[in-house]
């Protein structure tokens, strides 16, 4: 099978905003548009977690988004890469320690690539996606399934999903 090759050529993105200010999300839209055109890396923004390779998360993760984010992560098939975009994904940013905020994406799910900035430029986003594609390849070369699956589920506290 040449699955790895195909994965490299067409990583599909699942985008979820977990309570950010919209600034990152419009930059994602801008990078789909003709000037930056993220499609030249084969990346498409798709709404289905079961078909996605890269989970692109923006925002500091509010209490209500927490469960949705966890479920989206678990629904994505292996191998998968998580990209946290923007300053508030990195530990909360300006919203750190607010009463309804969980202080960053990595408090909920493991993160592979961080894109800094408020808001990050589309070039930075493309850079992050390209790095995510590389990580996706090393992950798919490992060709092993998670052995401690139950442990991870326990740690995430998402047994009912």
């Amino acid at each position: 099978m040449k699955l790895n090759k195909f994965r490299k050529k067409s990583p599909w993105i699942l985008h979820y905003n977990t309570g950010g200010c919209n600034g990152c999300d419009i930059e994602i839209l801008a990078s789909l548009a003709p000037k930056y055109d993220i499609e030249r890396f084969g990346a498409l923004n798709k709404g289905n977690p079961k078909q996605a390779d890269i989970l692109l998360v923006t925002g500091p993760v509010t209490k209500r988004c927490k469960d949705v984010l966890r479920r989206l992560y678990l629904q994505m098939p292996e191998p998968k890469v998580v990209v946290a975009m923007g300053a508030c994904g990195h530990g909360g940013g300006v919203f750190r320690n607010f009463y309804h905020v969980e202080n960053g994406v990595d408090n909920i799910i493991p993160v592979d690539v961080w894109i800094p900035g408020c808001a990050p430029r589309p070039e930075a986003l493309i850079d992050g996606i390209v790095e995510a594609i590389e990580i996706l390849q090393t992950k798919s070369k490992e060709k092993e399934y998670i052995r401690n699956h139950n442990e991870i589920i326990d740690k995430l506290g998402a047994k009912d999903d």
Partner: peptide
């Protein structure tokens, strides 16, 4: 608000941090 978050946050007596 969610059930587990602090209630009535905009009152003076409620602390802003978790």
């Amino acid at each position: 608000l969610e059930k587990e978050s602090i209630q009535a946050p905009l009152r003076k007596e409620t602390k802003w941090e978790k």
